[in-house]
Amino acid sequence: MSVAIDRRLEAARAVVEDASRLALAMRPPSGGPSGSQKSAQDWLTEADGAVEAFVARRMQELFPEDGFQGEEGGSVRQGSLRWVIDPIDGTSNFARGRNRWCVSLGLLDGDRPVAGVINAPALGEIYTARLGGGAFMNGKPIHASPVTDTRSAMIEMGWSNRVPKPVFMEKIGAILDLGAMPRSGGSGALALADVACGRLDGYIEIVINLWDVAAALIILEEAGARVSPFLREGGLTGGATILAAAPGVAEALSQATGIPLA
């Protein structure tokens, strides 16, 4: 199986690089948002559909036996190995011509993340990992932050219109009470990648979908981060809560926010 996963990861990285170039070419100019709104602050652009269709077609040609699930198209193929794509994660940034967005493609073996690629072309960063093989950014090993004091920690929290304002404010308050510095960057996949490489010490989102985290889950695991049981808590079939954190602050962050760790 490891040989099969290696072959798929190598192919996925090449396909995602091509898809990222397509997305970069379609990125709107800087300014007010381009595209349509699905709901408050939830944007859809022409590039979302084009990138997903491109990757779906290429992966079917390469691995016709594999399943495939996309944010825009839903579950379009079944298979014991399943690719899950977010064609543009950080669409609100992308729609304004900003740089913080990515193409994210993860591979699951049943309910087990086994490989992932996150490509942020405007930032020049590619994150990859496979089960048991380590995590990398641009080919160099990455590891979660060594921070152990929450008063030195930088924590990002994602926002969703599906979360009541009091719940969001409660979690933000818990972060502030720890003495940590809150952040919000508009891309869940890249925030999780930042936890994996130590740029952030934690990331929380109360409701997030599988396509946002499918690639990041294995990257986090291989980088030594602690993560809540997202898939076991409903993440395979719907929105669920995620907490990812550096080992030295994970327990404190979990206790403060009430989000259990795996």
Rank of each mutant, 00 (worst) to 15 (best):
L236F: 11
A225H: 07
W211F: 05
R7G: 15
W211Y: 11
F136S: 02
A53V: 08
K38F: 14
W159Y: 13
P29C: 07
Y203V: 06
A12K: 01
A225I: 06
E170Q: 15
D42I: 10
M181S: 15
N93E: 15
T241Y: 03
V55Y: 03
S254K: 08
V207K: 15
D89M: 04
G188E: 08
N209L: 08
T257A: 14
L253T: 04
K165A: 00
I118R: 05
R162N: 13
S39P: 05
E170W: 11
L9Q: 02
W211C: 10
G49D: 13
V207F: 10
G124Q: 06
T257N: 09
I242Y: 07
P166F: 04
E72F: 11
R77Q: 06
L253S: 06
L210K: 07
P260D: 00
V227N: 05
A144N: 08
W159R: 12
G234M: 08
G70C: 11
S39K: 00
Y127L: 05
A180C: 13
G173F: 07
G90E: 03
L62F: 06
W159S: 13
A19C: 12
V55H: 04
L22M: 13
L108H: 02
A189Q: 03
E10S: 03
P28D: 03
R183A: 14
T148C: 09
L81N: 08
R183F: 15
D42Q: 10
M137H: 02
A40C: 08
V163N: 03
E251M: 00
G106H: 00
Q255S: 15
T237F: 11
A189I: 06
L24I: 00
G234P: 08
W101R: 00
L231V: 11
M154S: 14
L217V: 07
S80V: 12
N161H: 10
W43H: 09
G202E: 03
A193P: 07
